[in-house]
Computed example of a mutant assay.
Amino acid sequence: MLEFRTEGFNGYGVKYSPFFDSRVAVAAAANFGLVGNGRLYVLGLTPNGIVAEKWFDTQDSLYDVSWSESHENQLVVASGDGSIKLFDVAFNDFPVQSWQEHRREVFSVHWNLVAKDTFCSSSWDGTVKIWSPTRPASVLTLPTQTCTYSSAWSPHSPSILSAVGSDSYLRLFDLRLPPSTSNHLALNLPVHSAPHPPSEALTHDWNKYRETVVAVAGVDRLIRTFDIRAMRQGPLAVLAGHEYAVRKVAWSPHLPDLLLSASYDMTCRVWTDGSAPGNGKVPAPIAKELGRMPRHTEFVTGVDWCLFGAEGWCASCGWDERLLVWDVRAVIGR
């Protein structure tokens, strides 16, 4: 397990580069994100450990980070002052582009994985916005009418994105629909159903292999997986085990049934949703926790998979001012 100390800054989001397996970015905030500056770290994984290749200081807390899918040195961050900033590792100190349209904290940013020329952001101001790095203003604003913690593009379509927030609804926007169709809103369905009361949904992620499957988690400590074609029938799987709110979920880029979670209970956990097929000798698995990584000593707020190499390397960050790089395979079965 490798470790890097984000001294004086508490981690909020972590993202592996889609171009290099040895490069990781961390969005962090001073004073636990309550007040003070932010810092974006660009870290290199070397034979001698993790080193800071670059860092950028900002005037307000940073809550999330996403690498450009089209430019290997550029990445965008979400800020507590409502701004979004685009940095280039090849340039010093200042962002190469900055936008200030959101009226409250921006809590997530996510690059379009298919078209690669746009990214989205979600904010506590009740909107999701779509941006182009080449334009001075947003391309489109999608109202959610609720504090929106997480937005994400589908990895299977350049026109579909989703969002979850404080009202416990999953919203699916399809940009192919005319704007008159409820501002491109294709689905608006509750995450919770009886007997579970609604609670804030903090995170969600699209399955990388099954294009209609989404995982959603939040304050009630449960991870639910859904097929968006039949959400009214309830979740495909409910994964229970975290002791406090789940802050981040991430499906594996290598295996269709595997996902990671990060929680305020100071653990990262790896799960199977039970969808892997069995064979004559090995039965199909059931949805369950496969293992946990308990090395963080404060809230764990971010986790991400490495896209390259062996199936299992990931990175996590938290309020303990630590980035940890570890092998999921080492914790499965404990």
Rank of each mutant, 00 (worst) to 15 (best):
G312R: 07
L290W: 04
R292I: 00
L324Y: 12
S193K: 10
M293T: 00
G309S: 07
L255R: 14
E3C: 07
L255A: 11
S123T: 02
T144V: 07
H71P: 01
T46A: 06
A115I: 04
W99Y: 13
V213C: 08
P178E: 07
V214E: 07
V96Q: 11
L185Y: 04
T301Q: 01
N48W: 12
C314G: 06
R295L: 15
P283D: 07
L86R: 06
A245G: 13
R229W: 02
F226V: 08
A215Y: 06
L175R: 15
A330M: 03
L290C: 09
P95G: 02
T144L: 08
P155Q: 00
L222T: 15
A78D: 01
S157M: 14
R5C: 09
L187D: 10
Y169A: 04
G274C: 11
H296S: 01
D273P: 04
L290A: 08
P18W: 12
L323C: 07
I228S: 03
P294N: 10
H71Q: 10
V328M: 14
S79Y: 07
N10E: 06
S157C: 15
I160F: 07
P155M: 00
L239A: 06
W99R: 04
D64K: 02
T148Q: 01
L187N: 13
S61T: 11
L40V: 06
P133M: 11
G82H: 09
D57A: 09
L323G: 05
R171G: 09
T267Y: 11
T267E: 15
F19V: 07
